[in-house]
Amino acid sequence: MNLLTISGSPHVHNDQSVKKIMFGVIISLIPAMLVSFYFFGLPSIILTLTAVISCALFEFLIQKYLLHTEPSVTDGSAMLTGLLLAFNVPSNLPIWMMIVGSLVAIGIGKMSFGGLGKNPFNPALVGRVFLLISFPVDMTSWPLPQNFTTSLTDVVTGPTPLGIVKEGLKKGDAMADLMTQVPDYVNLLLGNMGGSIGEVSALAIIIGGLYMLVKKIISWHIPVAFIGSVLVFAAILNLVNPALYVNPLFHLVTGGLMLGAIYMATDMVTSPMSALSMIIYGVGCGILTVLIRVFGAYPEGVSFAILIMNALTPILNKYIKPKRFGEVVAA
């Protein structure tokens, strides 16, 4: 006869688990993955696999031999970090840099704080920013998309559309001329442009984001606030001086904005908890992104914007509380 179990209520649980959430996110990344494999070919596949495997391996080794805890690598969170990290680098990055980046992302970005759920900053972004600052040349020589290539060496590199515009404006070129140098909006939306592996196709990422929304993995607050504030802020600048500031739609479909808004900023661990603070966080990300893109040294600002807002998350959590039931509203 088996003994009865005693526990406090509730005695049922919905069928969600960390593993399901993580693999849900991974599934939603498939469209973006396929698009980048198509445009960037075999090198991007190898790089992505390298990142995923090394992130998982580093987490396993650190948990097993350094922290002496039960490895939890099967929950998929390390693989997801690897995937997102790979999506944030150009496809011709040397393999060893990818491995170092993975070590930084997992080792410093995640495990040094105590592992899953304890890290203040998005680990994939920590890895990416580390690589960007350490190896700026390799991190900013973007291979131009070719229809599926298996060649590992023969790539043509060129600047990203954001880079073209930024450099051009600095030189004093006219906005209208610059816009002819960058791909048209359809290609930008599909991802036919230079850039990091996973960030190029806004459309594929939006599809993934909708999947996550339907599956209730993420809520709409952060992506909508992020993208919306970029749109509004860029539109204001554009209205002030169209010759100096680019069309807001251009901001939306270029660079890592979609990837950042839908995948990096919505990382549960590093984003705030209540609806209002999520919106503030998203708006903060959006404004910082535009500020860095337009006035900063880098053509791209999404990573930095998100990391800065990550740092503000604990403060948002502390001071913005959900509306308590029965709270007396001052009349």
Binding site: S17, S72, L116, V269, M273, S274, P322, F325
Partner: peptide, 22 residues
């Protein structure tokens, strides 16, 4: 019960709470 793992700060508990607590 299922195995307890680290909180991933997903805030599902806070949005499920009928009393608006965290």
């Amino acid at each position: 019960r299922m195995k307890e793992v680290n909180c991933i700060r997903c805030s599902r508990c806070a949005s499920a709470c009928p009393m608006g607590l965290e």
